[in-house]
Design a protein around this nucleic acid. Structure first.
Lengths: 243, 243
DNA sequence: CGGGGGGTTGAGATGTCTCAAGGGGTGTGG
DNA sequence: CCACACCCCTTGAGACATCTCAACCCCCCG
């Protein structure tokens, strides 16, 4: 029995083409909802949009700003500190709360990394709406599916890549999504202002903050990026992509 | 027909019950589809149910047997070997293909680890059906959400746990799901017959197969498990859970 | 001015990987 | 029926990446 995963099949290539070089991303906007007058809410930097365990009332689309989602996981029951990890960063036009649908409770905390605005889409309204409009239902399913893919890619990255590649992939992905969020489609952002700390990045990438810092410094020394605190300039994109 | 997300629906409960302490899991059955005469298909051990890149025609529910899903990811474009990883194992009553909805193409390969039977649910039928029946729509959303949670937990595990905890969590999760799949609810399976190789486990857990082997051996020496090739007996559950 | 959060960098500890050898099983062809 | 090949698993020893601990800096804010 040979599982025979053929990386050269047309099918395999097609799948990868959509993936780009970088990692997760693939957030999608619930565009059909644009026409609907959902209310918005402002969240200050450091405040939680929702917390793990709270009943799920709504899904949220980021209008402006940036969030991190943080999952907490008991340290296999008792004793010491529970495992905790940043499971994602969410920029404008991306949707938050999808992981809570299954249990009707939020599975993670969503914390604003800067002053942000979200559009509130109550699930009690969203579901009937989706039953009415096929396109909308399909889009919701697509968004959820994309989130599955995003999480799987994160897992793949955490399972297979060394620190350098993880950080590089993170930067590339972030720049792409920054571009997508400003809808200045075409070229990608080359000047990034990271709204999160090194510790956040490390948590997301499965690294210690020192490792993140060191890796960024090394990328700078090698001329791949410019670095000034949270200001990052992507100097040599191919250097980040190829290895 | 209950439009809102109700934590007390059978689907909701099923989803939560699967969560438990261990890691991923959280597969749910599309129970409402039981009444519908979807066709089935038999897949021989080692054969692919679908491959990455293929257009998404159907979702599949495992009737019997076991699958692994394998994601391939180009090594940041060119040069050497592409990253590849087992992103999940799927037992009876669990649903396959969810990650393909967003792109209408499968994102990974699904390979049978033993002779298996699946129920085929064409998306072209499933979506209209869900528009008709609120409960079914909700259940599909819940399943997809559960898959997001599962993938996030895997990422969390890969990002934060040492080898020993990963292997222990894997065994506990597998035993729980084995129990769930045989619907002998209540107590959990204590005697496991793993259908996958050490390499598969390692790929899934972000470890080398040698590390998996060593870790299993150590767990055996310490009296937490009994080990005989792919036959695993869980001797001391708390030893696996608590650190 | 003092304190605290965030960031950088160094040096040693350590867990996992890598490379290598060897031991069963099982299927197949002589 | 044996022999061989192949896959899977186990175990060892050294290499290496990342973690851990620690010191220090900067900046902002009270």
């Amino acid at each position: 029995m040979e599982p025979s995963i053929d990386p050269a099949t047309p099918a395999g290539r097609a799948a990868r083409d959509g993936a780009h070089g970088a990692v997760p991303s693939l957030h999608v906007r619930l565009s059909d909802a644009d026409a609907i007058p959902f209310p918005t809410r402002t969240v200050e930097r450091g405040d939680a949009l929702y917390c793990a365990g709270e009943p799920l009332r709504s899904l949220y689309t980021v209008q402006s700003g940036c969030f991190k989602t943080v999952a907490t996981y008991p340290s296999t029951d008792d004793d010491s500190a529970p495992h905790t990890q940043v499971t994602g960063f969410h920029l404008a036009n991306e949707t938050l709360g999808l992981d809570g649908v299954c249990t009707s409770r939020h599975e993670s905390d969503a914390v604003a990394l800067e002053a942000s605005v979200v559009r509130i889409m109550p699930v009690g309204i969203l579901e009937p709406l989706c039953r009415e409009y096929a396109a909308m239902q399909h889009e919701l399913l697509a968004i959820m599916s994309a989130e599955i893919v995003r999480a799987s890619r994160l897992a793949l990255m955490l399972g297979t890549m060394p620190a350098r590649e993880r950080v590089a992939a993170f930067l590339l992905d972030f720049s792409e999504r920054l571009d997508a969020s400003t809808s200045s489609s075409g070229e990608r952002a080359t000047e990034l202002l990271l709204p999160m700390t090194r510790a956040d990045i490390g948590s997301y990438l499965g690294l210690e903050l020192e490792t993140v810092s060191r890796t960024l410094s090394k990328l700078q020394r090698e001329g791949a990026i410019g670095l000034n605190g949270r200001q990052v300039r992507i100097v040599d994109r191919t250097m980040l992509e190829h290895h």
